[in-house]
Design a protein around this nucleic acid. Structure first.
Length: 625
DNA sequence: AACGAACTCAACCGCGCTAAA
DNA sequence: TTTTAGCGCGGTTGAGTTCGT
């Protein structure tokens, strides 16, 4: 491997010797000191340097990497130290080739996330983003060379076919992204569970990749527009595993709600959303000769690299605590039946377009052009032809498809009543709400989430209510006075599906999502227990699944308890809670160590979990939970 | 055995974000 | 409010390794 010769140090030296050995090593460059300081070494690390770094981290912990050089004498910049530690020295790193499960997971994650290596790494315990990135890039080249599609063609084709079988959402593409909006809620988080199902031993079937997500990535992931290169040249050498799609059998059960949103025949906007980068291909003429059906025509750049632009679909920028995968997380709770594509759609849906009606990505993407229309038009034509010949019954869309799922009701009134003129997405609640309506075809007659909750809350208070009257009253006050809020990216449940209350499953799932470090903690989760994961910045939290007051018997509510680890302004707080949008009074600061509780309700009619803010008093009242 | 192409992966670089000063 | 340091992420580079001819 590269640089191995450089690591010829055979042990640990005394520090002074080590340092001098660093200088005398002869390997690597030295950066000229810019400010009169010492020259910092670049290039391969030696074992001596590793030893110093390990020693430093043991003593001082991770972070403050720039101090390493000062305190340890290591002639490396902080960046280099961090990288070395993260990629090679930190404990629990898994070395060696990726397992088949890991490979599959990578494919799936990439289909969902695009080139979000760090996020992907968070799902692969012991693996680094760099490792995954290298693997992926290698794989891409390999497949390119082999003239194979990046993702299983069946997946793409299936999704494309199904795109014609469902209703459209009109202009509410999920891909109009708000790249500059730090409040975006990642679609990824909602996909995590499903993505991980493939590696969960207790998942009976291997659904493989969500067709739609795969397709979406095919279309929308700019870096690897997976329709492979038309230049199918003879592969001189094909090293490595031959299982390009580990775990895939070639038949992919799929649904394609994402495409369903674009039934409109991949309209211009849809096409753009789908990945204007599709046009990246160097030869426009070639595009016209390419068809979806045969999945040829990679749009890789001439140099073999790919566009580095963000997938529009994935234009989610998380504001995260240092913990790299906070979305691991709560998103998984109760998402056993989640529908990733649906989520993506909704997630994107909430990323409402700019007032102009144009996609924000229009302006952001360098790839948009009329050519895209042509490509998609042809794709549509081709697929349409195929579809007509094929059984229309391939409509596997679920009842929870976007039209209906968009019934997730942005709680306009909640936002506005709470004095928060803007949603976490940076859009006014009104606009968000109206878009929701226009997209779904539903009307404002439909109750907002808050209304829905409160209504059912009122109407169906069971006699055996476990709430005390006082609690009920208090809770009602809290919930009825506009302190509720909605889970914007809310329909991580397919409509009509019901959450599986099996906590073991969920805990295991969460554990899987969290990886080794936290898994043991989560595997021990039981209702009402509390776990500590300061990395999340959430202090402590816990899940409860319970029959919830006012909810039909077969429904389940979930409670998230947490304490605020430090003072947080609501906006920030929302980010940290992420896909829960929990409204707090304007100018309210979440005091450190205060207890809070968020209540999620899975609406049986809409299949949408709703999150309600509960203040400390109610939290206390709900302790029995 | 030699050569060269392909491959792998460690490391670097630039950019952007956040928090603190 | 502005500046700056720290950090993380994604893209790229290039040296070493592997393999086919």
């Amino acid at each position: 491997m590269g640089h191995t010769k450089n690591e010829r140090g055979n042990g640990i030296f005394p520090k002074d010797q080590m340092i001098s050995s660093l200088i005398d090593d002869g390997d690597g460059d030295f950066e000229a000191p810019t400010d009169g300081g010492v020259a910092l070494k670049k290039g391969p690390w030696t074992t001596a340097e590793d030893a110093i770094l390990i020693d430093y981290v043991k003593k001082h912990g991770e972070g403050n990497w720039n101090a390493v050089q000062k305190h340890s004498g290591l002639l490396r910049c902080g960046k280099s130290c961090r990288l070395r530690w993260a990629n090679h020295l930190r404990p629990n790193l898994k070395k060696g080739a990726f397992t088949q499960e890991e490979e599959q997971l990578i494919i799936e994650l990439h289909a969902k996330m695009g080139n979000k290596w760090a996020r992907m790494a968070a799902h692969l315990p012991g693996r680094t983003d760099n490792e995954i990135k290298n693997y992926w890039n290698t794989r891409i080249k390999r497949r390119q060379r082999a003239g194979l599609p990046l993702y299983p063609p069946e997946v793409c084709m299936q999704a494309l076919q199904e795109s014609h079988n469902t209703s459209a959402v009109g202009d509410k593409e999920p891909h109009d992204t708000l790249q500059n909006d730090s409040y975006e809620i990642p679609d990824v988080v909602f996909d995590n569970l499903k993505a991980n199902q493939n590696v969960l031993p207790y998942v009976p079937e291997l659904p493989g990749i969500s067709a739609s997500s795969m397709l979406m990535k095919d279309l929308g992931t700019s870096q690897y527009y997976s329709f492979m290169s038309p230049t199918i040249y003879c592969q001189k050498r094909l090293r490595g595993p031959t299982t390009i799609f580990p775990g895939y059998t070639g038949t992919v059960k799929s649904e394609c709600p994402l495409f369903e949103q674009f039934e409109d025949g991949m309209s211009n906007k849809a096409a753009q959303s789908f990945g204007a980068p599709f046009l990246v291909g160097p030869d426009p003429a070639a595009k016209n000769s390419q068809s979806f059906g045969v999945f040829q025509g990679s749009h890789s750049l001439p140099n073999g690299n790919f566009s580095a632009s963000e997938p529009t679909l994935e234009a989610v920028k998380l504001e995260l605590p240092s913990f790299q995968d906070p979305e691991t997380d709560f998103s998984s709770w109760g998402t056993l039946s989640c529908s990733p594509p649906l989520l993506e759609s909704v997630d994107a849906f909430i990323q409402s377009p700019p007032p102009s009606g144009g996609l924000e990505s229009d302006s952001l993407s360098p790839h948009n052009s009329g050519l895209l229309d042509a490509v998609f038009h042809e794709a549509k034509t081709l697929s349409s032809t195929k579809n007509h010949a094929s059984d229309k019954s391939s409509n596997s869309s679920t009842p929870g498809d976007i039209t209906e799922s968009s019934d997730f009701n942005i709680c306009k009134t909640a936002w506005e009543n709470c004095g928060e003129p803007f949603s976490p997405l940076g859009h006014s609640a009104s606009s968000l709400f109206s878009e929701c309506i226009s997209a779904s075809g539903s009307s404002s007659d439909e109750p907002s989430s808050g209304e829905t909750f409160t209504e059912s809350h009122r109407k169906s208070e069971p006699a055996d209510n476990v709430f005390t009257p006082e609690i009920q009253k208090e809770a009602r006050i809290q919930l009825d006075t506009g302190h509720c809020d909605t889970l914007l990216a809310s329909d991580w449940l397919e409509q009509g599906s019901h959450y599986d209350p099996d906590q073991t499953f969920m805990a295991d799932t969460i554990a899987t999502l969290l990886g080794d470090d936290l898994s043991s903690e989560y595997k021990n989760i039981a209702a009402g227990t509390s776990i500590s994961s300061p990395e999340w910045g959430l202090g402590s939290c816990a899940w409860n699944n319970m029959p919830f007051h006012g909810i039909p018997n077969n429904d389940v509510a979930q409670i998230l308890h947490f304490t605020c680890p430090r003072n947080r302004q609501p906006a920030r707080f929302r980010l940290w809670i992420r896909y829960f949008v929990i409204q707090v009074e304007p100018n309210t600061c979440l005091d450190k160590n205060k207890k809070f509780c968020a209540v999620s309700r899975l609406d049986p009619l809409i299949g949408v979990p709703r999150i309600y803010w509960v203040n400390e008093a109610v939290y206390d009242a709900l302790q029995w939970l």
